[in-house]
Amino acid sequence: MKRALVLTTLFFSCLMLASCASVPADPAARAAFEANNDPLEPLNRQIFTFNLRADKYVMRPVINGYRAVTTPDFRKNVRTFFANLKTPLTVVNDLLQLNFPNAGRALARFSINSTLGFFGVFDVADRLGIAPHTESFANTLGYWGVPSGPYLMLPLLGPSSVRDASGMVTDLFLDPITYVSAANNEDTLFGISLGIDALEAIAQYENIVDLMDDARKNSLDFYAYMRTMYQQHRRATIQEISGGADSQKASYEFSLDDEDWE
């Protein structure tokens, strides 16, 4: 198991090194290159193409089947159910971000929805005025000032960054649900956790698939469009949880005048 992990990591490192984009010499082009924060663009684009194929031949039939046999209301309940399972993880990350009020809220939501909400199928807590929120270790890293690192396109999982991808892996270990539901056997532990994640991924993917279709239909360079959306959204999220939006300028408060960009 460990050896396989090391070998896979090595393999991907070689692949990444081999497919690094060359840095442009022209200063303006170089500035644009650095702003994109995507030194692995050639590899990332290939993975993106692969993901689109996986979407077409695997995910889309699954989503279509799922939609054919369920109603929007039902699908919302499924998402609520999975969101509830992820709430303990949110509590952990709230605590790691020293956000105790939010940790309390998440904990209250988990207790209420797991019981009154029929194992999390209904969001009773929201109706009681405790609005949902999610936190991940990627956000926790951002909160503590870890920079995003280069943009990454993950196979099947989509847009990410070095920080966000490592946060995602750490979440597997941080998630209390993983430990509660599994026996001492390590493989079962990950099996259950990954199984939940896979089902959740389908439910989440179904939720955003229309947005993705819209983006694809309207964009000239779908890859570049997704990249900027992801990067901007993440920057804004981290800024918001860090409470920086009050003191410093928000990421979208840039100047429209050309001269200010030099």
């Binding site: 360079d221 920057r235 800024q239 979208y252 429209l256």
Partner: peptide
């Protein structure tokens, strides 16, 4: 600005990528 994503910045980034190519 939709969920932290500036629409004009998104256009700018996308066009920059197209123009670079």
């Amino acid at each position: 600005v939709v969920e932290g994503v500036s629409m004009i910045m998104s256009y700018r980034n996308e066009y920059s990528s197209v123009l670079q190519q």
